[in-house]
Design a protein around this nucleic acid. Structure first.
Length: 550
RNA sequence: GCGCCAGUAGCUCAGUCGGAUAGAGCAUCAGCCUUCUAAGCUGAGGGUCAGGGGUUCGAAUCCCUUCUGGCGUGCCA
């Protein structure tokens, strides 16, 4: 907000002086605090188009800017940067605004209530959720929370692929395990089947419920029954894991249900009407190459069954029909070849393919004793989300999973997690929160803490460290907007670490609670309480706890 | 072969539209608890920003190219 203010001032001066400003310049927070609170490269950017030296332009700007009361200092530096130092009063007033905003600090109408559908996790219902799903859950949920806060009308959705080959294989796997329990001699367990222990557990449960009776059903009925049983159990299992992780979905959409509603036929006819399908080798194809895909894609296989693509496309169309104008899919890295055909279909059906946005989360590599663990779902060698949560706290896991850019691989060191020591930065941030709580407690005990804050207190805060802390707090609303816009939750953890670090350093240098300087103490307590509140907001958005003591 | 993602300190990673002396955590070394929580703080060492070209006042950042790693390239889902 302050950046915009400075920008507007600069533009006004340029206009008044008859200078052109077509080139895009910006106001930024310099990385070196010696260069002031804000700086602009305007003079350098605009030098060429105005045929003046950067220095000459800077001088014109500085002369006018110095007349503003809000700026304590404006000067030229380096190759032509203009650096601004704001007056303490600006920060003092800001702190009071933060205090008054309370929990609503950072709220904005940036998203203008746009209806956004966030689809994430959407794991196959054929086994427990793995750690890649855990990453997706943490990422998607935090992005959701931030988007809500800055005014998007966001919804979290989980798409269940409960139709198709993998479900048949699941049912067959359970049946084989059931036969084992019944004492049938088995050859080796088939390679294609699901090998995980959970399949045995499912079979055991089914056995205790139904026993031999189960095999008296006709084959077809039995398989249907088996599918339904396994899918329900696994769905329940996945939902429980997610809840333990603090991730709740607003809706779950079943592929099977969609298929029963006839959407597959609808999509096929839409594409045919749009003249985008053809027959070749007894299969029906979608000419996606016309819309930028590498090759055409099969819609209906030669055996008459449908490919995964069709119901998935139908599913995406239902999102649009439900009124969402932005569809964000969070996918694993193995799906990137899939997106062009989805986008192609959007174009073919005259939808703006920009409405579909796909975020790829790169894989999670698990390390144990310095060795990378190879995981394979089919062979049953997976580390599940529940396994992970049995050794690492929810807070640490969620923090760890979002603390990285989406398109970077995530290395998760199990030994480190198992040690439960304090190397994880999440403790550093939470510790700052706990320490502040402790200060506030002490202040209350010493009767220094006021019952209500008085606005005059803020004028006591004049030390550079105090003003720097307030400045950091003022960056929070813009940060949230930027996170929502760029879909980059990891920046939330960086902000929390920076703020926590500034606090820890302040704590080491200054005593907050002192009965000698009561007013200064109270002013600092006000500052501390707001740092605490903003940290708590960060934690809330990350889905982790804000401990009062550690 | 083609496509996507990545390559920055010993390790894990930041570095926002090209900007000022490339940063943090961990690890290593040296210090700091009679004061609000030492899960903290202070200091030191550590860099060919994968290599090479180009664009310009200025490049880790943009363009070209080579190399390395991961993934994709099914009538699988």
């Amino acid at each position: 907000m302050i950046k915009q203010y400075i920008y507007d001032q600069v533009v006004a001066i340029l206009d008044a002086a008859g200078l052109k400003h077509e080139g895009e310049f910006y106001i930024e927070v310099p990385n070196n605090p010696e260069f002031g609170d804000f700086s602009t490269n305007a003079a350098m950017i605009l030098a060429k188009e105005n045929k003046k030296s950067p220095k000459a332009i800077a001088e014109i700007l500085i002369k006018e800017l110095k007349k503003h009361k809000g700026f304590k200092k404006v000067d030229i530096a380096g190759p032509g940067f203009i650096n601004f130092v704001l007056s303490p009063q600006y920060y003092q007033d800001s702190l009071w605004e933060i205090q008054e905003a309370g929990e609503s600090y950072g709220d904005s109408d940036f998203g203008q209530e746009e209806k956004v559908l966030l689809e994430f996790v959407s794991a196959n219902p054929t086994g427990p959720l793995n750690i890649v799903s855990a990453r997706a859950a943490a990422f998607g949920d935090t992005l959701y929370r931030v988007m809500k806060k800055v005014g998007f009308d966001a919804t979290r959705e989980f798409y269940i692929n409960d139709a198709g080959n993998q479900v048949d294989i699941l049912a067959e796997s359970v049946e084989l395990r059931l036969r084992e329990i019944q004492g049938e001699k088995m050859e080796e367990f088939p390679y294609e089947a699901y090998h995980g222990e959970y399949v045995k557990h499912l079979a055991q449960r089914l056995n205790s419920q139904e026993g031999v009776r189960f095999f008296m059903m006709p084959e077809k009925e039995r398989m249907e029954h088996l599918k339904e049983f396994a899918l329900n159990e696994i769905h329940q299992m996945q939902q429980n894991s997610l809840e333990k992780f603090g991730v709740v979905f607003d809706s779950w959409v079943s592929e099977k249900t969609l298929r029963m509603e006839g959407v597959v036929e609808e999509v096929l006819s839409y594409l045919a009407e749009a003249d985008c399908t053809y027959e070749k080798e007894d299969a029906i194809w979608f000419c996606s190459t016309k819309f930028g895909d590498d090759k055409d894609r099969v819609l209906m296989k030669s055996d008459g069954s449908i490919t995964y693509f069709v119901p998935d496309l139908a599913y995406h169309l239902t999102k649009l029909q439900r009124g969402f104008t932005k569809l964000i899919d969070v996918f694993g890295p193995d799906h990137h070849g899939y997106v062009p055909r989805l986008k192609a279909a959007f174009q073919a059906l005259n939808y703006d393919d920009e409405m579909l946005e796909v975020i790829f989360l790169q894989q999670v590599n698990l390390f144990e004793s310095g060795e990378r663990i190879k995981m394979s779902k089919r062979a049953g060698k997976i580390v599940t989300m529940d396994d992970l949560l049995s050794v690492v706290s929810k807070d640490a896991a969620r923090y760890f999973f979002i603390a990285r850019k989406a398109n970077a691989h995530l290395n998760f060191d199990l030994d480190l997690a198992l040690k439960k020591n304090n190397e994880n930065p999440v403790y550093y941030c939470q510790y700052a929160h706990a320490r502040i709580c402790s200060i506030l407690k002490k202040a209350k005990k010493d009767k220094v803490l006021p019952k209500t804050w008085k606005k005059e207190l803020v004028t006591k805060l004049v030390k550079p460290e105090e003003l720097a802390l307030i400045k950091k707090l003022t960056e929070f609303p813009e940060l949230l907007i930027s996170i929502a816009q760029q879909r980059e939750p990891y920046r939330l953890t960086m902000f929390a670490e920076e703020l926590a670090g500034m606090f820890h350093r302040f704590y080491a240098k200054f005593q907050v609670v002192s009965d000698k300087h009561k007013e200064l103490s109270q002013a600092r307590l006000l500052l501390m309480d707001n740092i605490r509140a903003v940290l708590a907001l960060c934690f809330e958005l990350m889905g982790i706890s804000a401990p009062e003591k550690m």
